[in-house]
Nucleic acid binder design. Structure first.
Lengths: 325, 325
DNA sequence: ATGAAAGCGCTAACAG
DNA sequence: CTGTTAGCGCTTTCAT
């Protein structure tokens, strides 16, 4: 590894001269700058990031804790975070909690030790279910700037980016009703998740609406099959993509006509629903925006730690597809 | 931020005593250790990672450059990398190249400045197509340990983890032939990609086998539709998941019986094919293993930079599904 | 225009 | 058992 010292020695100048020359300081003569630049290039000099960070007391890096990397929704958020961060000359470092509380805590510990300037975080399933939130409060106590996205935690007074789930759900149901559909079934694989709560609340607009929720795919499919066989249903609203796809496939398997006999709409972020046949109509969540907004909020917080806490809401949109509606 | 110095002052001992006490050194008395630990906890002391890294000249961090985070194959690899790294007490930092040469280079630059101990890298589409590989050789010249995975680069003498694409393809075709299928169509959306080359090579076992490749979904679908209408086909082998799904949906749309009239097998990593209807039969690529093996190779390289370069091959497996075969 | 020196927070060799 | 000191590589203030 070649350091400033090495260059200085070879150029017969001091370390500080080299440092200034490389950062194009006006204090240094053009001639010296030239020579220095040339040698730096020749020797493949790269500033040691660790040393720079230590000196600057900033890393220009954002830590991201994400529950699940197999969920297209989160990869899209991640991609939004990445590009917004890059735009602002920040790097991103990702820790995947795999929906476990332990991993989430480990990730936070790692991020708390000066590796990053701030943290973007979506709590894991487990964290939500156990409602174990002490580590978030501790993070705050430690004074580490962070932004919560997608999922939320009660009473935690930090910057947040959320989605208008409740309202979106209402809109979907209203759409079905306006379309003359009377026997609506709401399905979900989000049992016990806070995020599911809001969607559910919005969906159960009146008591004619039936609900089937489960926390596991196989069981869900079995129960759904029964429901479809035993009950008249003319519309299905899936609160998550997976239950939407499973419902779609089941309906097709039963040779039930979509959308004439049963219409389907699902919360989704695109990948499974895009390549399903027929294509699902979806409630699009603009995951990229969620990521970008989170970065934005964090950078503002980094600039001014005293500014009042903010909550940004990202609106969903209904994306109709005539083959399922 | 609370530092060793702060603790030392408050405890009326030297910085080094505190440092040693916190790392449970045998040189320090139990009493001092206790007191120190207590205060550290009370003051929420966290060692500054940047300083530790600078001092140790190691970051215990692996940099990963991945072409595409929306591809389930890569997220699976990433997950394999993450857990294997964690197991070895290494952290992971991810840079997404979005299949562009520029991003890939930027990622490498960032990783070259001491932020990571070594790099895991899958070249982007663009890099492969342009065959622009100078930056890899430069990385090697800089002496940064790295491992190539999934995609490969000619003449680049580094550790590699690859998949036995060629052989797998041959096996699939052989399976079709043994099954009495005569009119096999090979489809692909991997046009111009090296990885596609090997699969193609293996698939075009004899000249009765027809090929349709494209680099874009819409065009692919149009041509495929024509093919299916004009030609007798009793088996389709898709060299990538997307073309597989598109073919599947098209066949279903045409009311052609699967698998009686047409059988389908596709290269895949699970997500789209798992939730397709009917489920696709696939060539599974064991993406997690690819990730884990890459980490393994890198850690070995980190330990001994002089050990001979290695290439690990991860074997695929055929996963049959009676509804498509 | 250049250099000396201090210091970011930590570890570790060495001294006491 | 504890402390002193040097130094990781860099930036920056303050001489010169």
């Amino acid at each position: 590894m070649v350091t400033l010292k090495d260059l200085a020695k070879e150029l017969n100048v001091s370390v500080s001269t080299v440092s200034k020359a490389l950062s194009d300081s006006h204090e240094i003569s053009e001639k010296t700058k030239e020579k220095t630049l040339e040698l730096a290039k020749k020797r493949n000099y790269i500033p040691n990031n660790t040393a720079v960070n230590l000196r600057r007391k900033s890393t220009r890096t954002i830590g991201v804790i994400i529950p699940n990397i197999f969920n297209h929704f989160y990869t899209k958020i991640l991609s939004g975070i990445e590009s917004e961060a890059k735009k602002n000359n920040y790097k991103t470092i990702v820790s995947i909690s795999n929906e476990t509380l332990l991993s989430e805590k480990e990730g936070l510990d790692f991020f708390s030790n000066g590796s990053v300037d701030g943290v973007l975080l979506a709590p894991s399933d487990e964290t939500e279910k156990l409602n174990e939130v002490e580590h978030f409060f501790e993070l705050k106590r430690k004074g580490i700037p962070f932004v919560l996205f997608d999922r939320y935690i009660d009473n935690l007074n930090v910057d947040k980016v959320i989605v208008n789930d409740l309202e979106s759900s209402r809109n979907v149901i209203q759409y079905f009703l306006d379309d003359g559909r009377q026997n609506i079934l709401v399905v979900s694989l989000l049992k016990n998740l806070k995020i599911g709560d809001l969607r559910k609340q919005g969906a159960l607009l009146d008591d004619t609406i039936d609900l089937l929720e489960h926390d596991e795919e196989i069981g869900f499919e079995i129960e759904l099959r029964e429901k479809i066989e035993n009950k008249k249903i003319d519309a299905i609203f899936a609160l998550d993509e997976l239950s939407g796809i499973i419902a779609l496939n089941l309906i097709r398997q039963k040779q039930i006509d979509i959308p004439k006999e049963v219409a389907i709409i699902s919360f989704s972020q695109g990948i499974l629903s895009k390549y399903s046949y027929p294509k699902l109509s979806i409630v699009n969540q603009y995951a990229k925006e969620i990521g970008a907004k989170s970065v934005e909020l964090l950078l503002e917080r980094l600039k001014d730690n005293d500014k009042p806490v903010e909550t940004k809401m990202i609106k969903t949109s209904l994306e109709f597809n005539q083959t399922t509606l």
